[in-house]
Design a binder for these strands. Structure first.
Length: 309
DNA sequence: GTACGCCTGCGTCACACGAC
DNA sequence: GTCGTGTGACGCAGGCGTAC
């Protein structure tokens, strides 16, 4: 490092300089010191900001359970809980204490646990938002949909005066006037108007696709919610057959036998990559009207079995 | 112990810029 | 225009670690 603070190492002979020059040098020294101090402080602030943002980024990634860090963190946490269970068994903890730990494990890592369900909910909502057309697309499609032909037909082609006062018809009127506004602003000529009018099916197709997609996501949400509840109930039934210590031993065994779990994963993936399983056929025979609509996506819903579940 | 390289802080100079 | 101030660039001094 440098010498002691305030050490003077003047390169000029002060006796040869005027008072004015000496004052200027002294001022400039202080100024330079202050400038360096500010510069250093600024760099430190930036470094702190980088650290904070990097940490925030990591936390968000962990929260979303995406990326390598999240995977590793998840595995580490899971191992910790498993070790905790092992320790409890060794130290002769009470059944209620063991049960509390198993409940914690279930909520965090099970297929039907709180964390996984919350994660699924988050991602499905994200998909819903991404499916929504952008404002630009919406405006363009609505304008096309309500172009000249509709405008011409509207006064005479309406279904009746009663309908005109409904919110839907009001909405139509608004979008029609929006098109008129756009039309004059863009200086659209008759030929262009006709061509746009002929493209109305694009808007209709977009609407149809959107409605179908949203319906699919909504049904998927419902199905997963139901599956979660069913699995939870089944777990409770199993839990009544086995005691907490036995359940804890099972969790520990699963965690400590990654090779077996790897084989099961491979088997699981193979089963689901061969197309819909036999139960689908049975489902088709059922008169159940709730799940049939998403029967086609059912095979894709299956995910690799995780060792923790 | 000594030579060497690297790092950090210092003083000074030169220049830009705003206030007057 | 002059003056004061801030800051980049430069060279120097001194501390520290390392190889020999």
């Amino acid at each position: 490092m440098s010498g002691p603070p305030g050490a003077k190492r003047s390169r000029v002979d002060p006796s040869t300089l005027s008072d004015k020059k000496l004052r200027r040098l002294e001022k400039n020294r202080e100024s330079a010191r202050e400038c360096r101090r500010r510069k250093k402080e600024h760099a430190q602030n930036l470094q702190r900001q980088i650290n904070r943002l990097e940490n925030e980024n990591l936390q968000l990634r962990l929260q979303l359970k995406i990326g390598d860090e999240a995977e590793k963190q998840d595995e580490a946490d899971q191992l910790k809980v498993s070790e905790g269970l092992e320790q409890m068994l060794r130290s002769g903890a009470s059944e209620s204490e063991i049960w509390a730990s198993i409940e914690e494990f279930k909520e965090k890592y099970a297929d039907y646990g709180r964390d996984r369900r919350s994660s699924i909910q988050f991602h499905l909502e994200k998909i819903e938002r991404l499916l929504r057309p952008t404002t630009t697309t919406t405006v363009a499609m609505r304008a096309i949909e309500n172009s000249s032909k509709d405008e011409e037909q509207a006064p005479s082609g309406g279904k009746g005066e009663g309908e005109e006062s409904t919110p839907a018809s009001n909405q139509k009127t608004k979008t029609k006037s929006l098109f008129s506004l756009l039309s004059s602003y863009l200086e659209i000529n008759d030929e262009q108007n006709q061509l746009l009018s002929d493209s109305r099916n694009v808007a209709k197709e977009l609407d149809k696709t959107y409605v179908q997609s949203i319906k699919l996501v909504s049904e998927l949400k419902g199905r997963l919610r139901q599956d979660g509840a069913d699995l939870d109930q089944q777990f409770m039934e199993v839990a009544q057959i086995l005691n907490p210590s036995q359940l804890a031993k099972f969790v520990i065994w699963v965690t400590n036998n990654p090779a077996c779990m790897h084989m099961l994963n491979a088997l699981w993936q193979k089963t689901f990559s061969e197309g819909p399983d036999k139960d689908d056929k049975d489902d088709k025979d059922d008169k159940d009207d709730k799940g049939d609509d998403i029967g086609s996506v059912e095979g894709d819903v299956g995910k690799p079995m995780k060792s923790e579940s």
